[in-house]
């Protein structure tokens, strides 16, 4: 029994050791400092962390990788938590921060104590920390670039998110930049779908009668399925609707694909970005030269890998991906964006 485990471990190790020397960080301890666990995205994020770091610990890549969530989503709580993690002797802290600025003092203390700090999603501005940020603007632009490949031109309907939130502005700015650069499209109408299918459906149904034929719908995620329902109810030809990795969106897309060969793409941020941050921290501890500002790759689903993605997504959830060491190295390599 014991030898079998050893053999299995050795096999696992040899799979992953092509480019890394696992011994270098095998005595290192990495902690996750998280400020909030109250929605499905955060829960998925914690599950990803548990799964990937659990395997990494078993394989001996690192000695420990524990997750800590503060009891309350408060800056002072998390600052105290970070200081406690320093005292517990962790070599690196992976951080999803309650505030981009309020934790800088504690992060500074960590850096001064020789602890590597990698922030992701909720990033911190303290220069000594690493940041894995999301380029929402690029995400919006990518949607238009995809459409430019598929179509010769036409009218677009834009579904925006929650008004006044930074993410909404960023994605929309990217979409408009893409439209300007490609010069093929015209944005015929724009509604706020608040990242919710029911809101999006009502908003699209309301604006549709005033619109010419729509070639494609650009979205922000969580609104594609509602848009499709509105088009169907109005009896209008189905445009290309860009999806946002939600389970209901992917399910609808799959049904259409099987029925009439409907083609589109889907893009969003995977909660598994926590595991990317883990590998980046591991790489920094390993002595790799890692730029301080990295950008999260989007999780994009295309016609070919739709079935595979749908299978791995829980009903009611968001498509997720657990990043590997190789993914992290790729991000680090091309990270100076």
């Amino acid at each position: 029994m014991k030898t079998m485990t050893t053999v299995a471990c050795a096999a696992l190790l040899s799979l992953g050791t092509a480019a890394m020397a696992p011994a270098d960080t095998s005595d290192k301890r990495i902690a996750l400092s998280n400020n909030y666990a109250g929605n499905s995205w955060r829960q998925a994020m914690l599950r990803s962390w548990e799964k990937v770091t659990g395997e990494a610990v078993e394989e001996g890549v690192v000695a420990e990788a524990d997750a800590f969530t503060t009891a309350e989503n408060q800056v002072t709580e998390q600052a105290a938590q970070i200081q406690n993690l320093i005292l517990q002797g962790y070599d690196a802290i992976v951080l999803n921060a309650a505030s981009p600025e309020g934790l800088n003092g504690a992060v500074r203390e960590a850096c001064d104590a020789g602890v590597v700090v990698v922030s992701f999603d909720g990033i911190v501005t303290e220069p000594c920390a690493w940041r894995i940020a999301v380029d929402f603007k690029q995400m919006g632009k990518d949607e238009v670039l995809y459409l430019a490949d598929r179509l010769d031109g036409g009218d677009l309907l834009e579904i925006r998110g929650l008004a006044g939130v930074f993410v909404d502005d960023a994605i929309s700015a990217g979409i408009h930049e893409g439209v300007e650069e490609t010069g093929k499209f015209e944005i015929a109408g724009s509604v706020h779908g608040n990242w919710a299918q029911d809101v999006a459906q009502k908003a699209v149904a309301g604006i549709l009668p005033s619109l010419p034929e729509i070639a494609a719908v650009v979205t922000q995620g969580g609104d594609g399925y509602g848009a499709a329902q509105a088009f169907k109810a109005a009896g209008r030809p189905m445009p290309i609707i860009v999806m946002g990795n939600r389970h209901d969106e992917l399910t609808w897309w799959k049904e259409q694909k099987d029925a009439n060969g409907y083609e589109t793409m889907s893009v969003s941020i995977a909660p598994g970005v926590s595991t990317l941050a883990f590998w980046v921290a591991q790489q920094v501890l390993d002595g790799a030269d890692v730029p301080k500002d990295l950008t999260v790759p989007f999780l994009r689903i295309d016609q070919e890998n739709l079935e595979e993605a749908l299978e791995r997504t829980e009903p009611g959830g968001v498509a997720n991906v657990n990043y590997t060491l190789e993914d992290a190295k790729e991000v680090i390599g091309g990270g100076a964006m």
């Binding site: 408060q74 600052a79 500074r108």
Partner: peptide
């Protein structure tokens, strides 16, 4: 004192106090 430790502020920084 709190700002001296955190280096920057946030409108919700001390609600727990």
């Amino acid at each position: 004192a709190l700002v001296g430790l955190t280096t920057s502020a946030d409108a919700n920084i001390a609600l727990r106090y």
